[in-house]
């Protein structure tokens, strides 16, 4: 979970390209964590110390931990806590990017710190994120949004993300983005009206949509492909349904209207939604958003 959130942030900040990120994410399971990166992420060593010990390690056949302790950069207790700590995927992601030459050690620390500050997460929230607490992740990330209709937009985002987590992918990433080009992507839109009018949509390439449809409906991939747009559109329908139930529980009644496909979202009069959320799924990025209008 956290590695995807962090990866999404790197993508948004332009630190990595989508293809480099996909490649790095795909290699997470193959990589052995390095003591230097773990010590860096935990704040036990500085980037310069890690670089120095790594360089020394290449000249002598000795372990990183031994050399770091010898230089007074690490204590035995710190080394033991690093070794016994759970594998942190975001550190592995950073490690891959450092090894690929995309990030420096300093860059990794800087971007991790920047992510913590810009995500709007409290220290407590940040720890909850690392612990894969879905509810805390969603609420922390979305609670920083601004603009008209924020409360409903946030709530819709919460439900949509929970739907993705529940039906599609346990490791989903989300971050705000104001503008995006949807040309070439297939999208779906559904309006919900009541005290407010809410227009929700999602867009992605066919592969991602088929994946969403397959996982959310329980149908096999071939059948989902045969059913085409309707299969993925039903997922949005489902997420919106859950959203209206949530609202109803809070005393806000909304009417759902039949879903419709939007062949060209940019020129269909739908306009830009208040919130546009990129969800990093196993097969690519799915864009989803909604617009709130008060009547």
């Amino acid at each position: 979970m956290f590695s995807r959130l962090f990866g999404q942030f790197l993508l948004q900040e332009g630190v990595v390209s989508a293809s480099a990120l996909s490649s790095a994410m795909g290699r997470l399971g193959e990589v052995r964590p390095l003591i230097g990166m773990l010590a860096l992420a935990q704040g036990f060593m500085t980037p310069a110390q890690v670089v120095e010990v790594s360089a020394a390690q290449k000249k002598v056949d000795r372990r990183f931990g031994e050399l770091a302790i010898e230089r007074g950069y690490l204590t035995v207790q710190q080394l033991e806590s690093i070794i016994s700590a759970q594998k942190s995927e975001h550190v592995l992601l950073g490690q891959i990017l450092v090894q690929d030459g995309i990030l420096s050690h300093e860059g990794f620390l800087r971007v991790l710190d920047s992510y913590r500050r810009q995500s709007g997460l409290t220290d407590e929230g940040f720890e909850a994120v690392k612990a894969n607490d879905v509810d805390a992740v969603v609420r922390s990330v979305l609670s920083g949004r601004r603009g008209p209709g924020r409360a409903l937009a946030v709530e819709w985002g919460v439900v949509f993300m929970k739907s993705l987590v529940r039906f599609v992918d346990p490791g989903v990433a989300i971050d705000p983005l104001a503008e995006a080009d949807y040309k070439g992507l297939r999208g779906f839109v559904q309006r919900i009206s009541g005290d407010q009018r809410l227009t929700a949509f999602m867009a992605a390439d066919d592969d991602v949509l088929t994946d969403v449809a397959t996982r959310s409906s329980g149908l096999d991939e071939e059948t989902a492909r045969e059913l085409g747009p309707d299969a993925a559109g039903e997922f949005l329908n489902l997420a919106n349904g859950l959203f209206t139930v949530n609202c109803s529980d809070e005393g806000i009644e909304l009417d759902m209207m039949p879903q419709e496909t939007a062949p060209s979202m940019g020129s269909s009069g739908i306009g830009e939604p208040d919130a546009l959320l990129p969800f990093l799924l196993p097969r690519g990025i799915l864009w989803a958003g909604c617009r709130i209008e008060r009547r």
Binding site: G241, T244, E253, M256
Partner: peptide
């Protein structure tokens, strides 16, 4: 049978 099981 619906995804919108609202009170109303």
């Amino acid at each position: 049978a619906s995804s919108t099981g609202t009170t109303r």
